[in-house]
Amino acid sequence: LWNQPPSQLDRAHRVHTVSAAPAPKDIYWEFQERFGVKFIEGYGLTETGMATYMDPTRPAVPGSMGKANPGYEVTIVEPGTDRPLEPGTPGEIVVDMKIPNIVMRAYYGMAEKTAEDFRNLKLHTGDLGRMDEEGYFYFMDRVKDYIRRRGENVSSMEVEAVVTGHADVLEAAAVGVKAAEGASAEDEILVCVVLRDGCAPDLGELLDWCVERMPYFA
């Protein structure tokens, strides 16, 4: 919708509020102004309902999916160990309930899947996220898609978002490739790029673009 040419029909609708996953930060304010709508963003699953949301009575935090809803406990843990992580550290999003029966406890007829996803009686979402110092949560990736590099969890989606922000890049896909032999070897990041028609960017310039915008550990 955003990529369509602006039109006098952009506000020819009766929509007032859009409740959805976080919108891209670079179009957050412009989209609302252009289409005359207000974003109320959050995070939820079929199993949980709306576990986090952006309080519409407080200033918005673009890119965030808000804070934990009052009836929920939302934490970021180390995948595989359930060790709680410090603010700013990427990990798996885990959801529990403070009010009875607002988070499901089992998948019907799927005992093994239930045991896997509801370890320690908490729902392990399989989503990678982080929480900042003020308690705002940010979705980053699916856990199975993150890349482990030099002791850090790197979101493939965040890498791709930076690369596709370059004017000459149409699409990008970031994948992990083994940096060495052996089961303990970690990954290096390989980015595959599709250029826009007629574009041939300088590789050094593209790398400089990425360095200026990516986390130091990516």
Rank of each mutant, 00 (worst) to 15 (best):
Asp117Thr: 11
Lys113Ser: 13
Ala161Cys: 09
Met157Asp: 12
His124Gly: 08
Met110His: 15
Gly129Met: 07
Val163Gly: 01
Phe137His: 07
Glu73Gly: 04
Ala161Val: 02
Val154Trp: 04
Glu116Gln: 12
Ala111Lys: 13
Thr75Cys: 10
Leu170Met: 15
Val175His: 09
Gly80Ile: 06
Met140Gly: 08
Gly129Thr: 11
Phe118Pro: 05
Asp168Asn: 11
Arg150Ser: 11
Glu86Pro: 10
Lys178Trp: 13
Arg119Asn: 09
Ile93His: 00
Arg83Pro: 02
Gly151Glu: 08
Glu73Phe: 02
Glu92Trp: 03
Arg119Phe: 10
Glu86Val: 14
Thr114Gln: 04
Leu85Asp: 02
Ile102Ser: 00
Gly80Leu: 01
Asp96Ile: 00
Phe139Arg: 06
Leu128Pro: 08
Pro79Asp: 11
Asp127Arg: 10
Glu112Met: 13
Tyr72Thr: 01
Ala172Ile: 06
His166Lys: 10
Gly129Phe: 07
His166Ala: 13
Val163Lys: 01
Ser155Ile: 09
Ile102Leu: 06
Asp96Cys: 06
Arg83Phe: 06
Val74Tyr: 00
Glu116Ile: 13
Met97Gly: 08
Ile99Asp: 05
Ser155Glu: 05
Thr114Ser: 05
Leu85Trp: 01
Ala111Trp: 13
Lys122Ile: 02
Gly71Gln: 01
Thr89Met: 12
Lys98Gln: 00
Ala172Asp: 03
Arg105Gly: 02
Asp117Gly: 02
Arg130Ile: 08
Arg142Met: 03
Ala115Glu: 15
Val169Pro: 08
Glu86Ser: 15
Phe137Cys: 03
Ala111Leu: 14
Thr81Ile: 09
Ala174Arg: 02
Arg119Ser: 13
Glu158Val: 10
Ala106Cys: 06
Ile147Lys: 10
Ile93Thr: 02
Gly165Phe: 08
Val175Tyr: 09
Glu86Thr: 12
Glu86Met: 13
Glu73Met: 12
Asn153Pro: 05
Thr75Glu: 12
Met157Ile: 14
Arg142Tyr: 02
Glu133Trp: 07
Pro87Ile: 02
Lys144Pro: 00
Ala172Val: 10
Phe139Ile: 11
His124Val: 04
Pro79Lys: 09
Ile76Lys: 00
Phe137Ala: 03
Thr89Pro: 04
His166Met: 12
Pro87Phe: 03
Val177Leu: 15
Ala172His: 04
Ile102Glu: 00
Gly88Lys: 06
Glu112Gly: 06
Thr75Ile: 14
Ile76Leu: 05
Tyr146Val: 06
Tyr72Cys: 00
Ala173Val: 14
Tyr136Trp: 09
Asp132Gln: 12
Pro84Lys: 01
Glu134Met: 10
